[in-house]
Amino acid sequence: MVLCLLRLWGKDDRHLLPPARTVYSTDGMLFKGQKLGKYKILASLGSGGFGAVYLARDTWIDKDVAIKVPHKQHQSFGDLLREPRLLASVNHPNIVSITTAEKQDDLFFIVMEYVKGETLETILMRDGALELRRALDYAVQICNAVDHAHRQGVLHRDLRPANVLVSDNGVLKVADFGTSRFLEIAAHGTTVIGSPAYMAPEQFQGKAVFASDLYSLGVTMYQMLIGELPYDPPTPASWHKLLDSSLLRSPHVKNPAVPKRLGEIVMRALAPEVTERYQRAADLIEDLLATRPLVLGQTPARVDDVAAARPAGRGGPSLERANIQRRLHERAEAPVSRTCWHCGKPLHVRAGRCPFCGEAQ
């Protein structure tokens, strides 16, 4: 039939035929150079249990984007739209933003912000425990994202370093809301969702609540401070071992350089019983910010090492040590110029929240 039409139209009229339909692999896999509507695939960024993510170029506006293709393309259109609708409800600087959701040639995909950088998991695997100030900064940023999501009624349910992106300029973005649910929906479900190493005890029973995300954040904070998980990940059959509080040792006990108060905060986030844990991310942020002076004051703890390495002046080692302590104390107390990590505007030295954009610091 097509050949007959071509003979009738002639060679120069072939452009009048409908464009050939692009055929994609059955599992939604895309390849470098492949076109998906106006998007050109540049590279694969990774694949998880719920979908594959690609770096792509929006050829209309010359902008790099991230494209997520769910594995389960056979789901109803409403189910496919669940994740993009959740993302649209949690617009925040510390959450990967969504651009749109589209369907091309029967392939559904989500177009999201591309974050140039690496995952927190990659950083921890490479560097181990983070410097205290950096760990606290990262914890507060993640907590800001969780606080915003919870205020919209959204539970993440799979909060872990692999789902936290660290941009080249140090801004953290929580990603992968594919397992998320609105609280009222999650409360009536029994499906076990999450990664065992970061799951709260109640998640193994399919009973995730807001405090479950804060437990996952507690595991992540522990890992940032110590460089390892607080315990060996349980199997689904041995989750009840998490109810034994003796399983955990405070980060301060394992590393005395971690302030005792910061260790107590992490341990409260990791409380086995939901009622003993932080209930609101805002409360966790407040306690974390209160430890900033302790974290910034860690340098004087190394005074003995500094004094031992320097020649003693007049008055002997004791006077030299006292002088070093005095100078370090004065440096710690001196006002430091600060700017908001989010909007970049100047802040008062003791400001806990930016008066311009409202973000916790």
Results as ranks from 00 to 15, higher is better:
Pro272Ser: 06
Ala351His: 07
Leu159Phe: 04
Gly344Thr: 10
Asn169Pro: 00
Gly117Cys: 06
Lys260Glu: 15
Cys343Pro: 12
Leu288Val: 03
Leu229Tyr: 02
His342Gln: 14
Glu333Pro: 01
Cys143Phe: 07
Pro19Met: 03
Leu30Phe: 08
Cys340Gly: 12
Glu264Cys: 00
Asn91Asp: 15
Val266Thr: 09
Arg261Cys: 01
Thr299Met: 14
Thr26Val: 11
Asn144Gly: 09
Tyr114Asp: 02
Ala307Lys: 01
Arg302Leu: 12
Gln104Asp: 11
Ala322Tyr: 04
Asp168Gly: 06
Ile324Cys: 03
Pro84Ile: 03
Ser238His: 10
Leu130Tyr: 01
Val303Asp: 02
Ile285Pro: 00
Met112Glu: 15
Ile95Phe: 07
Glu83Met: 02
Pro230Met: 05
Thr190Gln: 12
Leu214Gly: 00
Ser195Trp: 02
Leu80Thr: 08
Glu102Gly: 04
Thr339Cys: 06
Ala332Asn: 10
Ile185Pro: 00
Leu183Gly: 01
Arg292Asp: 07
Ala43Phe: 01
Lys63Ile: 09
Arg160Ile: 02
Ser97His: 13
Leu248Gly: 03
Phe31Tyr: 09
Ser250His: 01
His148Ile: 02
Asn144Gln: 14
Arg151Ile: 00
Arg350Met: 12
Asp304Trp: 09
Glu276Ala: 15
Leu284Lys: 03
Val154Gln: 04
His188Ser: 14
Met29Ser: 14
Gly227Val: 08
Asp158Met: 11
Pro335His: 06
Arg277Ala: 01
Val258Ala: 06
Lys241Thr: 15
Ile285Ser: 05
His15Arg: 12
Asp158Thr: 13
Pro293Phe: 04
Asp106Glu: 15
Ile98Thr: 07
Pro93Asp: 07
Leu155Ile: 08
Ser44Trp: 00
Gly128Asn: 10
Leu183Thr: 07
Lys11Gln: 13
Glu359Pro: 00
Val253Glu: 15
Gln141Met: 04
Tyr39Asn: 10
